[in-house]
Design a protein around this nucleic acid. Structure first.
Lengths: 277, 277
DNA sequence: ACAAAAGTGTTTTCCGTACACCCATGG
DNA sequence: CCATGGGTGTACGGAAAACACTTTTGT
């Protein structure tokens, strides 16, 4: 697909992100970087095994106030000190990348583990440019997560030097390492997945109206949809949503109360819900 | 998407695959595996940085005699000695995963580098289960490549102990490590990509007929398509194929000679070419 | 009574499907 | 002249886009 090819970037998490992450602090100086080719005169010895650091990066999206937001953390240590970055961290020794992503997500957002356990979490892509991280060779597996609007966003960790904050994707400035490219890829993928999967419900609370579901599509796609047609399409897709006998009122104080739905058992959308144009 | 979750498997390339790969031979005993949690009594030290080996695995597909084939190599060393496996290998020190995949593909297939340079190569997924490889912690980035039917398949390397062979996917037996899961994922992805991208032409020689292109779809999908409708859809997709003023005869000796086409500049298919049912 | 949001119906257009038919070539 | 494969035309059915209309609430 697209080749963001972010050249001079990196993604290794370091000692930043407050004391709550002390359990996975990394002392870069302890790393055996002596074999890295960058520190050898010229070329490398092909017979030497090169150890890599492996991390996960997370593009976590939610919708707040009709805008798509992503979770960013502020780096406290060089490189890129003071810059915003995607949450993430190193794989533990006996932990898969997805397990690591789930663990990091729980740590960063403070969500209960039970909620994180059955969360939409999709592997996006692996970023492996040799100079992603100026310090060492880091290969990072990026994941995308879609979460409902959380009452307390990521306010855990307190008002420390290392903040974590929901940021509207439209106002995201330059990010550390190649995280801008990762974020762009995640946005592309998320928009595309809405077309042929049921992931849109992941943005919604357990019970939601069709109007809220439509707002998810409109927010991510940046387009307006015809309400009657959207309604028909969703209800015609078996297993996309299941009705809840009961109604509630939303999106403003007035208007007819809307029926409530839960996400259905289906994961893919047949036929797809194509975006306009 | 799907979660193959291959549990007890691995993917590290070792000293197998003939002498032509000597440049990247790996002596497992030289690896610093002392820190691996599997060799410690119980649990692990979260503060210790764990070095990972990073490899690429390649699911290379071609169509020969109306059957989808994949390129497999036979392992000469334990673990899984004698078993077939996907081609692949370790990342070099200053090499991205895609570069490594391209290099390995050139080495395994013996294709000229120029041809490999502008080849369809798509990152599939990264496999990181902790026990993928019984010897050590290996994270593998899997790629999918689609190539035309090659005159000399993978006959380079000679009749050595380590063979490389095109195998019909229908007759693939058990594979080493989690390669069966990777192959299954690659098949799923390839079938899906035919629907909304132009990658099908990657299976074809530079000049091809619409009948050959249709056979690609029918072979990968295992379904028959209506020829007139297929023709219209392809020609209606701008940039999918471009006509060549000239004709040739094919697929048997008789019948009207078919017009020839080259692949066009487009990469995505609007509207998509959905498979039946 | 009016505004705002949910829900229903209808028309028109377009696309996918199925299938009939003609063309060119080899045996 | 018949089998085989390439290429064209066309009619039918269903889905999607556009839009008018009804229903139910709050103010």
């Amino acid at each position: 697909m697209s080749t963001g090819s972010p050249a001079h970037d990196g993604s290794a998490r370091d000692v930043s992100r407050a004391g709550r992450l002390a359990a996975e602090r990394l002392d870069v100086d302890r790393l055996d970087t002596g074999r890295l080719a960058a520190e050898r005169p010229e070329g490398y010895d092909p017979r030497a095994f090169e150890p890599f650091a492996v991390t996960v990066d997370l593009a976590v999206f939610t919708i707040r106030a009709g805008q798509l937001h992503t979770l960013l953390i502020r780096r406290g240590e060089p490189p890129y000190a003071g810059r915003w970055a995607l949450p993430g961290g190193f794989l533990h020794a006996r932990e898969s990348a997805e397990d690591a992503a789930r663990r990091e997500l729980a740590e960063e957002t403070g969500l209960p583990d039970a909620l994180v356990a059955d969360l939409q979490l999709e592997q996006l892509r692996t970023y492996s440019a040799p100079d992603r991280d100026p310090r060492m060779r880091v290969v990072s597996v990026a994941y995308t997560a879609l979460v409902p609007d959380l009452p307390e966003p990521a306010a855990s960790g307190g008002g420390d030097a290392d903040q974590a904050r929901w940021t509207p994707v439209a106002t995201v400035g330059p990010l550390a390492f190649d995280h801008a490219a990762i974020l762009a890829d995640a946005l592309d993928r998320t928009g595309a997945k809405l077309e042929y999967t049921c992931v849109a419900t992941a943005f919604c609370p357990p019970e939601f109206t069709l109007g809220e579901l439509q707002q998810v599509y409109e927010t991510v796609w940046g387009a307006t949809l015809d309400r009657p047609n959207f309604r028909r399409k969703v209800l015609a897709s078996p297993g996309f949503v299941t009705p809840v006998p009961g109604a509630s009122r939303l999106t403003g104080g007035r208007g007819k109360p809307a029926a409530l739905y839960r996400r259905g058992p289906a994961t893919t959308l047949h036929p797809p819900l194509l975006r306009p144009r």
